[in-house]
Amino acid sequence: MKILGIITVIITGFLLLQAERDFPDWGDAASPASDNRLSQHYITETINETRVSNMVTAVLADYRGYDTMFETVVIFTAGIAIIGILRVYGPSTKLEHPEPTLDTEKPDLIIETTCRLLIPIIQLFALYVIAHGHYSPGGGFQGGVIFGAAFILLALARDLQTAQKWVPENRVLNLAAIGIFIYAGHGVLSLIFGENFLDYSILTKVLPGDAIDARYHSMLGVEIGVAFTVTAIMFSIYSNLASNGKMEEGI
């Protein structure tokens, strides 16, 4: 099997290196990927069409809104799949954990204090990353992961039960569904007003400002939706993997 693997890898690598000669040079501004009309339109016209400085956010949430919406659905589906695979309801005695050797009765002072100091800052930073995605690197996915990390830190530092007090399982799944609902809601709302799905400019009827402002504000809306889903699913994935699907005690 190993020999077969090496042969396969060498042949594939050789073929890819042969094809590499046709690829554009390093840093070539006239490469096919950068030279096409679409990519240049994104760079020069984003600011006029959406008023968003960060082109990546604009392309992600507006021009390629379908892609991002179903990306969020992929995350949601992965979370559901993990719950379906791992989650065990009721008492289960399979896979006994070794008895914890550390004293878990009293939380450590240093860990306790660090958590108290760090978690609010991490959450604030996550909100900043979500809200500031229009002007700096950031957005729903990144901010959502950071927000989820705050809960994972809580679960790691204390135990899963403590984290579950803040984000119990049913609330997590509701949050994940609400995120997709917010995103798809923007699309359906545009549809109701008589435009295409996820064509935000028509949302000027319910949002302040003109059509461009509507696109600007809707992008923030869908980013918030994405952040909800990503936060919830990140924590759900962690808690399921860490507790073997029993949701009782973590690592």
């Binding site: 990546v56 392309v59 992600l60 990306e71 979370g79 993990i82 994935i237």
Partner: peptide
């Protein structure tokens, strides 16, 4: 256009990272 890196590939990779996390999570499960 030549003053800014191509935003399209960054968007595609942002979503690819997300898919990576999802597949890795399901694989681990």
């Amino acid at each position: 256009a030549e003053d800014f890196a191509n935003p399209l590939v960054h968007v595609l990779m942002l979503t690819a990272i997300v898919v990576g996390v999802a597949t890795l999570g399901v694989g681990l499960a």
